[in-house]
């Protein structure tokens, strides 16, 4: 493993998280609970797709095969995507959308705060731009968690269910494989495993403030670092890649 190849894969993983969550949120356009919230969710989606663009461009650059960020976003087979499983979970009801956003944003806040110190200056620069966006996503999700958890009996029930349903996908955030460890030693990667304590603390406060229970840790789903996904990703890609696959010679 050399640094450049490892950086390519590492960046691709980060890029895929932004790409697929941006896509998921974009599905909600014109479906928000109130017009104002529709615009808010679109803003988050746009932040994510913008971040995906920057990361996938860097992934393409470090791959040195002359590809573009669009080639990476639209032309890979399913098992060459590396986003975390939680990212590709369906939007579900608004509680699921918010719970997913809360879990992811809190993790990303901790993660990108560390990545800002990376020796890789491109990743560090992307991190410092993205951290501002994530702070807002986190606040937005935490505020809604509070309103739904401590709102009506129905919203409380829905929010608790969403938290419970998604909990088994949160273990993946903190996994470190050989590649991560290798780049950590090069002072490029973040030690994700070290963020678990802080993440648990923040989530516990957010959920308890919202009168919600923190689920018990049980078996955590895993696979994304190896390109093994839930059934959801294939459907996302079959839509997302449709035009690029159907008209491979076309430029858009």
């Amino acid at each position: 493993m050399n640094i450049q190849e490892a950086t390519h894969t590492y960046t691709l993983r980060l890029g895929d998280n932004a790409l697929i969550l941006g896509h998921r949120l974009s599905e909600l356009c014109s479906k928000g609970p109130i017009l104002e919230e529709d615009l808010a969710l679109t803003n988050i989606s746009l932040d994510m797709i913008g971040r995906a663009q920057a990361l996938l461009k860097y992934a393409a650059d470090t791959e040195m095969l002359g590809k573009t960020e669009d080639d990476l976003a639209y032309r890979r087979p399913e098992n060459h995507y590396y986003n975390n499983l939680i990212i590709e979970q369906p939007n579900g009801d608004f509680a699921h959308t918010i719970a997913r956003q809360l879990f992811v944003s809190v993790f990303e806040f901790l993660f990108y705060t560390e990545l800002e110190k990376s020796k890789d200056t491109t990743l560090a620069a992307i991190a410092s731009k993205t951290i501002k966006e994530i702070k807002y996503h986190m606040q937005h999700a935490a505020d809604w968690t509070l309103r739904l958890g401590d709102g009506t009996a129905e919203s409380h029930k829905r929010m608790q269910k969403a938290v419970n349903d998604l909990w088994m996908y949160t273990g993946e955030f903190f996994e470190m494989d050989n590649l991560d460890t290798f780049l950590l030693h090069q002072h490029i990667a973040v030690d994700a495993s070290s963020l678990k304590l802080e993440w648990n603390k923040y989530i516990k406060t957010a959920l308890n403030d919202a009168t919600l229970n923190v689920p018990e840790d049980s078996f955590m789903q895993t696979g994304s670092k190896k390109g093994i996904h839930t059934e959801n990703l294939g459907h996302i890609l079959s839509e997302m890649q449709y035009l690029q696959r159907a008209y491979p010679d076309a430029k858009w």
Partner: peptide, 29 residues
């Protein structure tokens, strides 16, 4: 237009379309 967001053929196209539809929502507002 929302019918094509998830099938927009490039990252640039997707951002533009999303921002545009968001504007329509804002204008309704």
């Amino acid at each position: 237009e929302g019918n094509w967001i998830t099938r927009a053929p490039s990252l640039r196209a997707k951002q533009i379309l999303l921002a545009k539809i968001q504007d329509e929502g804002g204008h309704g507002l």
